[in-house]
Simulated assay, not measured.
Amino acid sequence: MTYMGKDAKILVVGAGMVGSAILRRLEKDGYDNVSYTFNSKKPIEEFNNYRSLQVDLKDPVQVEKLFNEVKPEFVFLSAAKVGGIYANSTYPAEFISTNLDIQQNVIKLAFKYNVDRLLFLGSSCIYPKECPQPIKEEYLLTGPLELTNRPYAIAKIAGIEMCWAYNRQFGTKYLSVMPTNLYGPNDNYDLNNSHVLPALIRKFHEAKENNLASVSCWGSGRPRREFLHADDMASACIFVLNLPPSIYNGYVEAVDSPPLINIGCGEDVSIKDLADKIRKIVGFKGEILWDSTKPDGTMKKLLDVGVLKALGWEAEIALIEGVKEIYTHYTAKFMAE
């Protein structure tokens, strides 16, 4: 049983790595009345059967036009400005202002156009730097944030609060999900702006192609991170938005806790071990050097996914198999360029 009918009017806001994964899953599950936004030069070719709209989500006029044209019943808000430690540290103003603009515009228009359910995608970086592990949803706002991504985290926390505020004041059905570190097809491989996993793939691949003796990586390699494939994330998002009202409403109608569910696989790995796994998959034979002058970020960040597991969902894609798959995607893109 699903709550969203196969002909429901669905809007996926943002067609990046997560948004495109949601579109693939919607297509696989037989949803045919789907629209999505993009801000690049052209829509994604593999979704020609879906309606695509080029929208600057920071512009409230364009977002108003979007909702007026689509009149969606269900919204996946996956659009965001994202990046790794370097990008967050270098462009803090852009990270907080852009994400606040996108969230405010979309959530306000979702209310105006009577959207039935909205799913807001946040990030595990919303939780305090020194959180008990694994991290439960209830730990939100219980301590200081990690400084390197504080502006981004505060923007995402504001999005959660905005969903909760609209639910309490207007009876809307907006739910927030907090994914762990994600990877998958259509990831960002820019060495200055990407997250650790795609950055390592590119570094090792280019080192192999150029016959380098070593690769330098940021930090000590000791921090531990949890990684989830974007296709698993998409599966979880659609699962959550399809929860029956008797369960779903229990989260969005709560007055003593925000409407929040963690999404992850429940297992972590050290960055040093991750780098070694990727090095072997790529086939780089050289040495890995760790630059301890660069920041590590939070030392451990593992989500407690007990709530989602109790609801009946678990991740399916193992890290090794997932990395092998996206390395194939990366090399195909690399050869095409």
Rank of each mutant, 00 (worst) to 15 (best):
I326V: 13
M299A: 13
W313F: 12
G250N: 07
S257W: 13
L311H: 09
K309N: 14
L311F: 08
A230R: 04
D231K: 07
C265N: 05
E325K: 14
L308I: 04
A254H: 08
E226C: 14
V240N: 01
A310C: 10
W290G: 11
E325R: 15
L260M: 11
A315W: 00
I238C: 04
D256V: 03
S246T: 10
V323Y: 08
G306K: 04
Y330N: 13
C265M: 04
E314H: 04
A254R: 13
I261G: 12
K294N: 06
G264W: 09
P259V: 14
K300G: 10
K277D: 15
E226N: 15
N242Y: 00
D304T: 07
F227L: 15
I238Q: 07
E267L: 05
I278T: 10
F239G: 02
C265F: 01
I271C: 12
P245Y: 13
L228F: 00
G297I: 06
D268F: 03
R279F: 01
R279G: 00
I288E: 14
I247P: 00
S235W: 07
V255A: 14
T328E: 12
E325P: 01
S257T: 13
P258T: 11
K294I: 01
I271V: 15
Y327I: 13
G283A: 06
G266S: 11
G283R: 11
I320E: 15
I247S: 03
L228M: 09
K309G: 03
V282S: 11
K272W: 07
T328I: 15
I278R: 15
K277G: 14
T328D: 03
V282R: 01
I320M: 08
L274I: 14
L308N: 09
S270E: 02
I263D: 08
D232A: 03
K285M: 02
K285E: 10
A310P: 04
A234P: 12
G286S: 09
V255Y: 15
N249V: 09
D256C: 04
L260R: 04
V305T: 08
H329R: 06
T328F: 11
G264S: 07
D273C: 11
G322V: 09
H329P: 03
P244S: 10
N242I: 01
L228S: 06
E267P: 10
H329G: 11
G250A: 06
I281Y: 05
L241F: 05
E316Q: 14
T298L: 01
G312F: 11
D304Q: 09
V307P: 00
A318E: 14
K300P: 00
T331E: 06
L274T: 00
K309V: 03
Y330G: 07
N242M: 04
V305W: 06
V282Q: 02
K294V: 06
G250Y: 10
L274R: 03
G297E: 05
Y327T: 10
E325M: 13
L243R: 04
E321H: 15
K272F: 11
Y330V: 07
L274W: 14
S246H: 12
A236C: 02
D232N: 09
I247V: 05
D273E: 14
M233Y: 03
K277C: 13
T298W: 02
L319V: 05
N262L: 01
E316P: 00
